[in-house]
């Protein structure tokens, strides 16, 4: 699907900690090899046991709207044609202590409300600094589905 905000809007700067999250097309979290804690956003150490042995953990991509805002005021010229837009905080079903920021991209489904079910979909954005595109999580309302839609 198309990016919810304009193509030339701010992109994530990739680093070793966040590359999976922004390129894999999966909801890539981080798990501590020593104590098993799953954390987000990723960190150089486990926030629970301070181990530096961390591995990828994947979330299923189903959750609920935990909070949201409708933004009416363009924060910059590039957003002038995009207001009003929504920003939502999604609480994951399979890792309920994890909250992920995104946009709910299904305007036909009516107004956003806290508690509504959502699932992750992916938008592919060319990366001007790399041959590999960025894949950003976005959200649509609905019950948990099988394979994530493109």
């Amino acid at each position: 699907m198309d990016r919810y905000l304009p193509e030339d809007w701010i992109l994530p700067a990739l680093d070793d900690g966040n590359r999976d999250f922004f390129t894999s097309g999966r909801l890539a979290l981080q798990r501590c090899v020593e104590c098993g804690t799953v954390q987000h956003p990723p960190e150089d150490v486990c926030r629970s046991c301070q181990s530096q042995r961390l591995e990828a953990a994947e979330a299923e991509g189903n959750g609920r709207i935990y909070s949201f805002s409708i933004v009416h005021h363009p924060l910059g010229p590039k957003l002038a044609g995009s207001v009003p837009y929504n920003v939502a905080l999604i609480q994951l079903d399979d890792h309920p202590h994890v909250r992920i920021v995104g946009n709910v991209c299904d305007p036909d489904e009516g107004p956003l409300e806290i508690g509504q079910r959502v699932r992750a979909v992916w938008t592919t954005v060319p990366d001007p600094h790399s041959d590999e595109p960025l894949r950003l999580p976005q959200w649509v309302r609905g019950e948990p589905a099988g394979p994530q839609a493109e």
């Binding site: 701010i10 946009n103 950003l136």
Partner: peptide
Amino acid sequence: ARAAGEQAYLMPFG
């Protein structure tokens, strides 16, 4: 054009 650190998880989404 790019947001790093914590902002990488925030700014691209508005």
